[in-house]
Simulated scan of single mutants.
Amino acid sequence: MILHTFTLTLGSTRPIYGSAHELRGFFATKFTEYTELHQHNADKFIYRYPVVQYKMIENVPTVIGINEGAEVLKQIFNDYQEIRLGENTYQIVERGISLKDEEFGISDKIHSYVFMTPWLALNQENYRKFYTLKGKPERDEFMRKILTGNILSMAKSLNYDVPGQIKCDTNVRFQKDRLKDVSVMVFSGKFHTNFLIPDLLGIGKSVSRGFGAVQQLKANNEGGSTCSSSSTQGAPT
């Protein structure tokens, strides 16, 4: 399957400090007519994989649109001269644009990825279950199932019917982060899978707010354990 992506990066006259959540808030407030930018239709939240996602990659505001989200970004990417993140306003003097047609889906090779932003993998139920597991092997197997579920959820929302078994392995560590002033568990590190994912697409929960952005490593490592593509353990995207 081919995904059409539009990646936008923004540069200012001074270093930009802010969060992906604040970046999302700027676009959602500025362009309220586009539901793709904020996932709301009137007062109702649209439960689907976000086709516009916001990231702060090394303090560079980055927005990626997928398919219809890419078409929206093409229309509005130049319709502002400044952005407001929190209490700070930044003049935009540079826009980086990348338009691509990228492969997405099952591959005959194992590909390695690194999380560029923390992976918010666990819902409340899985968070509690994770803490009951004893030892690294049990936790590693649990996270492999979560990763498989996240990939399946993303694929389903993008109308991709997975034709075979997903193989994956994870090499991640957990840490604390905050989401909407709530302490959450997130993961960083790498994973390996026979699934092609375009750079900067998010996996897991709250991907529109910057969590779970991945980047493929060019020097692939061998994958590990096999995860069943029928797994339902994954947290919703």
Rank of each mutant, 00 (worst) to 15 (best):
R178D: 02
F27S: 01
S188F: 00
V72K: 04
L99I: 09
Q53Y: 04
S228A: 12
H38I: 07
Y47S: 13
G25T: 04
Q81C: 05
I2D: 11
K74C: 09
L122C: 08
T7A: 07
D169S: 15
T35N: 11
A121P: 00
G105N: 05
G202E: 13
F6W: 05
Q75A: 12
D177W: 03
L99K: 07
G96V: 09
Q124E: 15
I151W: 00
I64M: 09
G234R: 09
Y131Q: 12
M143K: 00
K180D: 10
I57D: 06
I16A: 13
R14G: 07
S225V: 12
S225T: 10
P236Y: 03
E102I: 05
F187Y: 15
V114P: 00
K176L: 13
V60Y: 03
V60C: 13
T7F: 04
V52D: 06
Q91F: 11
L8K: 02
D169E: 14
V52I: 15
M1L: 11
S208M: 08
N171Q: 12
H21T: 11
A70D: 05
E141L: 08
Q165S: 09
N123A: 10
F191R: 03
S188D: 03
E22V: 01
F187S: 08
E222S: 10
T7M: 14
L122S: 05
N59E: 13
T117G: 05
G135V: 02
H111P: 02
T237A: 08
K167S: 09
S229R: 09
Q53K: 11
T237W: 00
R95C: 09
Y34H: 15
S12W: 00
T62Q: 07
V162N: 07
G164T: 04
G105K: 05
G223Y: 02
I76M: 12
R128N: 11
H40N: 10
K205A: 11
N67R: 11
G135Q: 06
K134D: 09
G65Q: 04
E141F: 06
Y54F: 15
R128C: 01
I57G: 09
P198I: 07
F191T: 01
A70F: 06
K129T: 02
D161Y: 08
R95L: 13
T32L: 11
I57A: 08
E71K: 13
R209T: 01
M143D: 01
H21R: 14
E82S: 15
I83G: 01
Q53T: 14
D181I: 06
G86Y: 01
K190V: 05
K136A: 06
T32W: 02
R178W: 07
V52C: 15
I97F: 04
P61F: 03
E141H: 04
Q175W: 01
I146F: 08
V162L: 05
K109L: 06
E103W: 01
V60F: 05
N171K: 13
S188M: 11
E102L: 14
D199L: 08
S188T: 14
V60G: 05
R173T: 13
C227K: 00
V186W: 07
S107G: 04
P198L: 12
Q39L: 15
K44L: 15
N59L: 09
L152E: 02
I166A: 06
N194M: 13
